[in-house]
Amino acid sequence: MSGGGDIGSTNTKTPADFLKSIRGRPVVVKLNSGVDYRGILACLDGYMNIAMEQTEEYVNGQLKNKYGDAFIRGNNVLYISTSKMTLADGA
């Protein structure tokens, strides 16, 4: 195993750095199934298990459900994003 991510260069941000920086922030969590969860990130662990607050579930961009608290099992997670999303239709 070669840990390429832990180089000391100033402009790098490893997954561990990212995880530390996003607690308490609004996030979008996308699952492999394509479902999006938007809410406030309470905490997460090394498996990418996630606890979220004020969670909204979007299927095909449509709001389907709301959860006060939600635990998302990490193996379903495609990505965790800090951004507000902008959608556009491609060709």
């Binding site: 997954p15 990212f18 979008v28 990490g74 495609l78 994003s81 902008t86 239709d89 491609g90």
Partner: peptide
């Protein structure tokens, strides 16, 4: 197409 600022990709 979705645009995103910053992500952690699994």
């Amino acid at each position: 197409i979705t645009k995103l600022d910053q992500i952690l990709l699994n």
